[in-house]
Every structure is written in structure tokens, then in C-alpha cells.
């Protein structure tokens, strides 16, 4: 393998319902930095049916080139068909780095592609960098279930690959009218050759908890002690008009459902105000909320790591502080209204 043949940073462009997934736009933002540092092209690889017009969005988000596989066989995401397109493209154009969103589709695809290439794949990356001289990808993620980060390298294989958490990287503001080179590719793949078939896609009508879009999140941890204790979090959230978040331990205890979990194996959130109440501040939790506008921690242990990751901290008992906060907040709002 001659590393000199491998050039450029690629982003797998995930699309659905005629839209480019936001994580792909974020990765184009992150990929742009890597490509510029290395002095190479940034490319998107777009696979689907009737998706060619999405290239516009991809260029505006920072790509120089988009490789497009637009064929009916790609109507639904399927591991085997998408993988074949990606392998075909990688074989022909030899990128140095391929990034995927750490979504269920991105992880599924990347795992299969990595095995066939073969190459190394770093999962759930939260920080990306590249060595300018060698092109070595520095992919970092929380590791070993502790409060540490690990940087993972793939020295002997190309391309280097990573899946990257959504909401961690920043998309560039779209540069309207920016264009680039479209490279149209096809592969000869017959429907009979694909061993899986999507029979039906069902959108669940149940209202999803969209805590990743809330301006205010009140998150509670194991420190609330019990299911009943955790109701205090709901009360504060209601008072402030915010959404409820939780640590993984709370979800595992069954005090609230998984869609509320913030962190590495939950959602990443960036609200304007984030309350962490009775949460110790493990790295897996921190990576999911550290980009919030104002982080407020309430914890009775003054050594808790959460205090290293907050803007304002109160060392105290949640059962004393939170009811007081609810009372005083309501009072203050009422006063506001009267004076107006």
C-alpha cells in the first residue's frame, strides 16, 4: 500500500426524506478544517435515489467535490448496496480519510466498509485532528468507562475512518452559490444480488422527546436518590419551561426513558441553559452537554467533577436548593408581571 496514492478527506453524506442529515453538514465543517490543514480536497459521497440535487447543499457546506451514486437500487439504505458503492468509490479515488456520522446508518455502514477494506475504524469520535505532515488522523473519544479521553490512530492502513458524534462538530454557515465538481458514478448491481429488502418504513407517531432542540434543559442524576426524588427535576423543568434530561444511571434505574439521556450513549445537547443536578459529571455525560450556553451544577459533593465543567455551581443538597429555586423563580416572575 503506497500511502501517497491516498488523498483527500471524505464525508459520507447521509440523506433522508430529501434532506441532508445535519450530522453530515457538521462533518463537512470539521472535514474542511482537516482538508485545509493537509492542503487537500474535501469531498462528499452521496448515495441514494434522486439525490443529485442535494449536491448543492453539500457544496454550500464546504465540499469541493461530490461523488454521486444515484440509482433506484439505492432508494432505501441497505448495508450491502451502500457498502458496495462506497467500496467502489474508495477503490477508484482513494481517499486518505473517510468520516461518517455516528448514527445508526453511519455506524452500520462504516463497520461493514472497514471490514472489507480492511482498515481501522474509530467509533463515536468527539475530537478530530490531522497531522499536517503525515496525514495521520487523530481521532479522540472518551474511553474505558472512566474520566479519560483516548486518541486513536490507524498508522498502517488507508483510508483511515471514524464515526463522529452528532452535534459535536460545527457546520460552516452555508456559502450560498458555492459550487464544485460533481463526479457521477454507477455500479452494476441487480436487485436480485441484494439479500435484504425493506418491506415497509413506519414513522412512529408518538411524540418524540426532542430534548436536543430545547433552550433550557434540567437534567438530573443518581443524586436524586429515587424515582420519587427525580420528580423534583420535572417540577423545576416545568417551572422554567424546559425539557428534562438525565444521566445514564438514572435511565438504567428506570426513573425516565432513554430518549432523555444526555451523553455519549444518549443525545448531545446544546441548550442555552443546562442544569446538572445530582450529576457527578463523568466524561460520558460531559461530552453530551459541554457546549451548552450556561451550565449550572448543583451537587452536594464539592469535589464532584461537574464543578470543573460548569459556569455556576452550588454546593448543596438538591432537595433544599431546588424547591427554593422554584419558589423564588415563580415569585420573581410574578413580580415582573406586576411591574409591567
Amino acid at each position: 500500500m503506497d500511502f501517497k496514492d491516498y488523498k483527500g478527506v471524505w464525508v459520507f453524506i447521509e440523506q433522508k426524506d430529501d434532506m441532508v442529515a445535519s450530522v453530515s453538514l457538521e462533518l463537512l465543517g470539521a472535514g474542511r478544517k482537516l482538508a485545509d490543514k493537509r492542503g487537500v480536497e474535501l469531498a462528499g459521497i452521496l448515495i441514494g435515489e434522486n439525490v443529485k440535487h442535494l449536491t448543492k447543499t453539500v457544496f454550500e457546506a464546504g465540499a469541493d467535490t461530490v461523488y454521486v451514486y444515484d440509482q433506484p437500487i439505492f432508494k432505501h439504505y441497505r448495508t450491502e448496496s451502500y457498502m458496495k458503492a462506497l467500496l467502489d468509490c474508495s477503490d477508484k479515488h482513494k481517499p486518505e480519510i473517510i468520516l461518517y456520522g455516528a448514527t445508526s446508518t453511519g455506524k452500520d455502514l462504516a463497520s461493514a466498509v472497514a471490514t472489507d477494506l480492511p482498515t481501522g475504524l474509530t467509533a463515536d469520535t468527539t475530537e478530530l485532528d490531522v497531522e499536517e505532515e503525515t496525514g495521520l488522523l487523530l481521532a479522540s473519544r472518551p474511553a474505558f468507562g472512566g474520566n479519560i479521553m483516548a486518541t486513536i490512530l490507524c498508522k498502517k492502513y488507508r483510508p483511515q475512518m471514524a464515526t463522529v458524534r452528532s452535534k459535536v462538530m460545527k457546520a460552516l454557515p452555508p456559502e450560498i452559490g458555492r459550487t464544485g465538481k460533481i463526479v457521477e458514478e454507477t455500479i452494476s448491481l441487480k436487485e436480485e444480488d441484494i439479500r435484504t429488502k425493506v418491506l415497509e418504513i413506519v414513522k412512529e407517531t408518538v411524540k418524540k422527546v426532542k430534548i436536543d432542540e430545547a433552550d433550557i434543559i434540567v437534567a438530573g442524576g443518581k443524586g436524586l436518590g429515587s424515582f420519587d426524588g427525580f420528580q423534583l427535576i420535572h417540577r423545576l423543568a416545568e417551572t422554567l419551561g424546559g425539557a428534562v434530561g438525565a444521566s445514564r444511571d438514572v435511565v438504567e434505574a428506570g426513573w425516565i426513558d432513554h430518549p432523555h439521556q444526555v451523553g455519549q450513549t444518549g443525545v448531545t445537547v446544546t441548550p442555552k441553559i443546562y442544569f446538572a443536578i445530582g450529576i457527578s459529571g463523568a466524561i460520558q455525560h460531559i461530552v453530551g452537554m459541554k457546549n451548552s450556553g450556561i451550565i449550572i451544577a448543583i451537587n452536594k459533593d464539592k469535589e464532584a467533577p461537574i464543578f470543573q465543567n460548569c459556569h455556576y455551581g452550588i454546593v448543596g443538597d438538591a432537595f433544599e436548593i431546588v424547591p427554593l429555586l422554584i419558589e423564588m423563580f415563580e415569585h420573581a416572575l410574578a413580580k415582573e408581571k406586576v411591574t409591567k
Partner: peptide, 30 residues
């Protein structure tokens, strides 16, 4: 193919300001 090159504790941000005083004073600042 993958190797762990470096393991590090995430840089500790300066840390927030811990609000002082009794609970009522703390909540007032908040």
C-alpha cells in the same frame, strides 16, 4: 489496525464560580 496512542484526562476548564453564602443567598445569585 487501530492503536491507542495517547490517553489523557480532558483539560479541566477553569471551572465555574461556586456561588457562596447560605442556600437562599446562593439561589438569589443564580
Amino acid at each position: 489496525p487501530t492503536i491507542v496512542s495517547k490517553v489523557w484526562a480532558p483539560p479541566k476548564p477553569a471551572g465555574g464560580s461556586i456561588l457562596e453564602g447560605n442556600p437562599r443567598a446562593q439561589v438569589e445569585q443564580l
